[in-house]
Amino acid sequence: MIDGTAVDTRPTKIMYVAEATAHAGRDGYVTSQDGQLELKVAMPPALGGDGNGTNPEQLFAAGYSSCFHNALVMVGRRSGSTVAAKVGIGPNKRRGYGLAVALSVSLPVVDQDVAAKLVDEAHDVCPYSNATRGNIEVTILLG
């Protein structure tokens, strides 16, 4: 929302569609339609699993950090930066589960005020940020 007005972040034109299929839930595997992705998935030990595979939260963290970093490069035209994502999962108040994200952004050799402006612009551009805005807590740490 800007000044109390909802901002429409839906795409006006679909330019690419990613397709993936989960087999056997959190203790199975995931594949992409183009064959580029085939991963074993498993519950992490913290949630009672054996941890012998990746999990949806790791995949989300990888996607969000990669997407946000690309948005940062796009708005800042700078290299040498990094974005790390931490995705937390836990019970919510509606008998389900929710996510929380912390993005750690490193912009070496950039003035702190300039870096903060670039991060704000990237947060406006990034599709993951637009998809999660108002739905889950996203904290951005600039270091």
Rank of each mutant, 00 (worst) to 15 (best):
D50M: 01
V110H: 04
T82I: 07
S79G: 14
L142P: 02
G51T: 07
N70G: 10
T21P: 03
I2W: 02
G28W: 00
S81W: 07
F60Y: 14
A42K: 06
D34W: 02
R77F: 02
I14Y: 04
R94E: 13
P11T: 03
R94Q: 09
P127F: 01
D120C: 05
L99T: 05
Y64S: 13
G98N: 05
V17G: 08
V75F: 01
N52H: 09
R77A: 06
P11L: 00
L47I: 13
H69D: 11
V138C: 02
T54G: 06
Y16F: 13
N130E: 11
E19P: 01
G49R: 00
S79A: 12
S106H: 07
R10E: 09
V119C: 05
K40N: 08
G143I: 03
P56C: 00
E137G: 02
D124E: 10
G63A: 12
G98A: 15
E137L: 04
I136R: 05
G48C: 03
K93L: 07
V110T: 14
V138A: 05
G134M: 08
V83T: 15
M74A: 04
E121S: 14
C67M: 07
A122I: 14
P91Q: 09
G35V: 14
I136G: 15
P44D: 06
V17N: 12
A84P: 10
V105L: 01
R77K: 12
L72M: 13
Y128S: 10
N92Y: 02
L99N: 11
A84V: 12
H23Q: 00
R10F: 10
Y29A: 06
V73K: 15
F68N: 08
S65I: 08
Y128I: 05
V75A: 02
S79K: 14
T139H: 06
P127E: 10
R133A: 12
S129I: 01
T132F: 03
G4Y: 00
G28Q: 12
T139L: 06
V83I: 09
T139F: 01
V73S: 15
L39E: 09
A131E: 07
D3C: 04
T9G: 08
P127I: 10
L72C: 10
P56N: 02
K117W: 00
G143R: 13
A85H: 02
Y128K: 03
D124W: 04
D113Q: 12
V101F: 03
E57N: 05
Q33I: 07
I14D: 09
V87P: 09
S129W: 00
T31D: 10
S106P: 09
V119N: 02
L39Q: 08
V83P: 15
I136F: 03
V73G: 04
D111W: 00
L103R: 15
G76F: 13
T54D: 01
A115K: 03
L39H: 03
I2E: 14
G53C: 09
A116N: 12
P11A: 01
R94C: 11
T31G: 11
N135A: 11
V83Y: 04
M15L: 05
A71N: 13
D34S: 12
D120V: 06
M43V: 11
K86L: 14
L59W: 03
A122V: 10
Q112H: 11
Y29W: 10
G96V: 14
V87S: 08
E121V: 07
